[in-house]
């Protein structure tokens, strides 16, 4: 759900602004709206999610109405409209992965983190959710972690343990 009442102030760092300008340059004159999806990814990579303030600034930058940004951000599954855990483990839950144990792995991750799908662990580090086919069905079960969408393939309970330990260690 879109949280338009959110008033978190956001200031785009200079590097983000120049990246956005570069992206806008990829399209013909007057077609700057084409830059919307890539720019939303860049903004989300910086702030972890898309607040309405951040989206309003994107609208301004592209010279379009704020509603045009909200429309897009709510349509696509990759944009987070609320703050999430630092690491969101996105596990594929579609048919081919389920043939080789994806559901069990997802249950295992839930148990291990001690939260339900979509919730954030108390330390703010992790959440997980099921997502649809990630085009890696031959290496199932698989999960990905944004913002660079690193893939972890052929998951087992042991490899999940290792991954979570590693991510904790990164702190």
């Amino acid at each position: 759900m879109l949280r338009v009442e959110d008033t978190t102030a956001v200031e785009f760092p200079a590097a983000l602004i120049s990246k956005c300008q570069e992206i806008i340059g990829r399209y013909p004159e007057g077609r700057q709206k084409s830059a919307l999806l890539p720019i939303l990814h860049e903004v989300q990579a910086v702030f972890g999610w898309l607040s309405s303030n951040a989206m309003d600034q994107v609208a301004e930058m592209l010279n379009i109405k704020a509603i045009e940004v909200y429309e897009v951000a709510t349509f696509y599954t990759m944009y987070f409209l609320q703050p999430k855990g630092k690491y969101v483990l996105e596990v594929c839950r579609t048919g081919p992965c389920c043939l080789v144990g994806a559901e069990k792995i997802m249950d295992y991750i839930g148990e291990k983190l001690g939260v339900k799908e979509g919730e954030v662990t108390p330390d703010g580090l992790f959440s997980y959710r099921g997502v649809e086919c990630l085009a890696a069905c031959g290496y199932a079960p698989v999960l990905q972690i944004g913002p660079e969408y690193t893939f972890y393939e052929n998951l087992t309970p042991e490899s999940v343990d290792k991954l979570i330990a590693e991510l904790k260690g990164k702190m």
Partner: peptide, 24 residues
Amino acid sequence: QPGGGAYICGEETALLESLEGKRG
């Protein structure tokens, strides 16, 4: 151009809408 996560954007005309910065 990266998409935003939506199977329907593989359908070519939805893809074009998305590339124009709209819903797919």
